[in-house]
């Protein structure tokens, strides 16, 4: 127990014994994880933007004349079960007549003597998926229905948005992986330099009969602290940055950067602790005989 508490205390004391190298390590963790955190948030919020845009996608399906309400309701149910369809809204001939009156201020009966407006349906597509939304399979399934007369949708616009989104997602994932790799590289090299400056200490420890785990343990405690503190700082910095960003954006457009501070902190702390602890173990192994 005395040995264990000594090793824990050693780890913490080392942070203060080597203030400069500790600060450098914490700062490098803070800096690199801030970039990682920023990319996580950017990716999350791109999803929100695409969800917002997909909510605006509209497919209008016009039905043929001569079908009963039951037949149309049956068709609506079939449309609702198509993969990729989120919801459907039936606009009956009567609803169409009301809409015409509200939009043009005149009764269609007074104009042409009968109601020529067809019953129709507004189809809303799924908005949550992270993958590219394919609109054509939905259109093909709709065309196969016997009640369907005409389908109107923004074909070019939707496919262009979805293509841009797909490309952006791929780049974002690549950037995230790249920034994570750079973080691992920078943090482990900073730790390696820190431990290199103390390689005589490791030798001295071993010469007085310390076991490998005895030598390594304080460095692991130190690494844990560096990782925790550096990642906490990056989480705090991102929190305030987003908070400020939201107030600025709020003045311009009605969009809010969405994030869960607890999840973001937990993710960054996990990454920080993992990288710095593994980095400490690897760096000490290099000098322990």
């Amino acid at each position: 127990m005395d040995k264990f508490s000594f090793l824990i205390a050693e780890g913490f004391k080392n942070i203060f014994r080597h203030k400069l190298t500790s600060s450098a390590t914490i700062f490098s963790i803070f800096l690199t994880l801030s970039i990682v955190g920023f990319l996580i948030l950017a990716n999350q919020n791109t999803n929100k933007i695409i969800e917002y845009l997909r909510a605006k996608y509209k497919i209008e399906v016009f039905f043929k004349e001569g079908f009963t309400d039951d037949e149309l309701n049956n068709a609506i149910n079939q449309i609702g079960s198509i993969k990729g369809v989120r919801s459907t809204t039936l606009i009956s001939k009567k609803d169409a007549e009301k809409i015409f009156k509200s939009q043009f201020g005149e009764d269609i009966f007074d104009l042409v003597g009968f109601n020529p407006l067809p019953a129709s349906c507004v189809v809303n597509v799924e908005k949550d998926g992270i993958e590219k939304l394919e609109i054509m399979p939905i259109i093909k399934r709709l065309e196969m229905l016997p009640v369907v007369d005409e389908i109107k949708y923004q074909s070019g616009l939707i496919s262009r948005i979805e293509s841009y989104y797909e490309r952006f997602s791929q780049i974002a994932i690549l950037c995230f992986i790249l920034s994570l790799a750079i973080s691992i590289f920078v943090i482990s090299n900073t730790i390696r330099l820190t431990i290199f400056s103390r390689k005589n200490l490791i030798v001295s420890f071993q010469l007085i009969g310390a076991t490998r785990s005895f030598v390594r343990f304080p460095f692991i405690v130190e690494g844990l602290f560096h990782g925790f503190f550096g990642s906490m700082l990056s989480a705090i910095a991102l929190y305030f940055l987003i908070d400020y960003g939201n107030t600025v954006i709020d003045d311009i457009i009605s969009f809010k950067i969405n994030f869960d501070p607890y999840l973001l902190s937990a993710t960054l702390i996990f990454i920080g602790i993992m990288i710095s602890t593994i980095g400490s173990i690897r760096a000490t192994s290099k000098y322990i005989k």
Binding site: H18, R198, N200, L201, S204, Q206, L207, G209, R212
Partner: peptide
Amino acid sequence: PKKLPKLRQKIGMVFQNYLLMND
């Protein structure tokens, strides 16, 4: 290597450059 600490725990060492821990 696992046995080395046991051996060294029974050996005291003194060096020309002392090898004291400066921290």
